[in-house]
């Protein structure tokens, strides 16, 4: 199972590091990252492999949401299937 983590918010130092270290903590393997900065808005999309996750998916999702609150970012962790089904025939 793979998930997509999106991070949107004001650009600050160390966002990528914080999100990826959280992934490491849950044993989620980062496969691909794209990021862009539009004016001062940071937008990162991360594809992660969850097949060796050491906790249930829901806990990772909650931890990411919590990290988002602490860092004043909007972080969403969603199964990749929702994007595949919506945008691919």
């Amino acid at each position: 199972m793979r998930a997509i983590i999106t991070v949107i918010g004001k650009d600050t130092v160390g966002i990528l590091a914080k999100v990826s270290s959280k992934c490491a903590q849950y044993n989620a393997n980062v496969i691909e990252v794209t990021q862009s900065i539009l004016q001062d808005l940071f937008c990162m999309i991360m594809l992660v492999d969850l097949s060796k996750l050491n906790e249930p998916f829901a806990e990772l999702a909650d931890a990411m949401t919590q990290l988002g609150k602490e860092e004043n970012l909007s972080i969403h962790t969603m199964h990749e299937d929702i994007f595949n089904c919506m945008h691919h025939i």
Partner: peptide
Amino acid sequence: MINAYDILETI
């Protein structure tokens, strides 16, 4: 990977 625009649209 899925197009970034599509991902942001869904969100």
